[in-house]
Design a protein around this nucleic acid. Structure first.
Lengths: 208, 208
DNA sequence: GTCTATATCCAGATAGAC
DNA sequence: GTCTATCTGGATATAGAC
């Protein structure tokens, strides 16, 4: 009977992951309130009632996804901050990776959109609001640290490093929203144009 | 009796404007679906039933506001495009004005947020979707025209002008969202940092 | 674990009195 | 023009059979 236990656990975990994936897609594209629990269940291919064996409520799915989304973003931010490289290289690397990921990963775009949906509405579950309150500043702080280091090394322009970090993230975020909401978006801009905002010296090799 | 007619029209117009203002605030901060028609009516200080003498449905209020928001943005964009000034000056002026307006005008922030809410969800009324489809590209085209002129005059970096326009608007939009969703936002960044992305030559007077 | 059927609630919209 | 009271539909969540 211990064998069945294991199998059940595995099924349970897989099912939960299916629900999460489907809910992420729908929440990101439609928003929390416009997404019906029946649609998520239908998307997964399970009965509506069954979904409640995995999550106690629609809100809880949302909170779970928000928590996950914030953690992923924070982890990536801290990775960049703690890289072995110059500040200049970190900024260029981060922008290049972010833009590439926005372009190629549907799931990453959805994650950005989910966070946008959540931060842009006061009508989300209180738990989700608290998570955002706690965790949303970490990427800003990480990049601000890099900017300050860049100022010391002479590669980054003068100004409040936190302000530069805000410009960094709001620009990336704006792009992410733009590209995830247009099918006809075309290709991504060159990441070096964004980098040009923050760096004192030339970022383009041949041209300019 | 013609006198009463006039007065009624005036009351009617004022009332409608009150509803619009309240709905804009609530749609922008909560989203279409989380906003209840009862709350809008309460915010205006009228009975729920009375609201239906001014608008046939919640969706129609939303569509009306979206239409208005897009028109305002487009008008401002075309104003900048047709200014009597160099492309470089137009870019600097536009960014300066946009950032100042985001900072000072609650209503402008709400307008940006409303558009963000609308473009970021597929679950909005079809009429609204069509309006967005029709009108949202105008600001991009206007700024792209300015960017192309700037390239000819030698002040703007190389690259697809439409791409530069996308960077222009997504950056501004990201900032607008950021500042409208934080009470503790602090002051706006220097608009010249954003301008630095697009301009070949120095944008800061003394420093750098 | 999975489904169908159902209870419950709530928001949008309407009717009708004043 | 304004209000109160009500209808109606639809979505969340639950109950109970298999």
């Amino acid at each position: 009977m211990a064998r069945n236990q294991e199998q059940n656990d595995k099924i349970r975990k897989e099912r939960k992951e299916q629900i999460r994936a489907e809910a992420l897609r729908q929440f990101a594209t439609q928003g929390l309130f416009a997404t019906r629990i029946a649609d998520i269940a239908a998307g997964v291919g399970m009965a509506q009632g069954l979904l409640y064996h995995y999550y106690p409520s629609k809100d809880m799915i949302f909170v779970d996804l928000i928590d996950d989304a914030l953690d992923k973003l924070n982890k990536a931010s801290l990775y960049v901050k703690d890289m072995q490289a110059s500040a200049r290289e970190k900024i260029l690397f981060a922008l290049q990776e972010l833009l590439k990921t926005i372009e190629t990963s549907e799931q990453f775009s959805d994650t950005c959109r989910l966070i946008a949906q959540a931060t842009n509405s006061t009508a989300i579950p209180e738990d989700a609001q608290q998570l955002i309150e706690e965790k949303r500043d970490i990427p800003y702080e990480a990049i601000a640290t890099v900017m300050a280091a860049g100022q010391r090394e002479g590669s980054v322009i003068a100004g409040d490093p936190r302000m530069l970090a805000i410009l960094f993230w709001t620009s990336v975020n704006g792009l992410a929203i733009y590209y995830s909401t247009r099918k006809d978006a075309g290709e991504m801009p060159d990441y070096r144009i964004l980098a040009k905002m923050f760096l004192r010296d030339k970022v383009f090799g041949e041209e300019e």
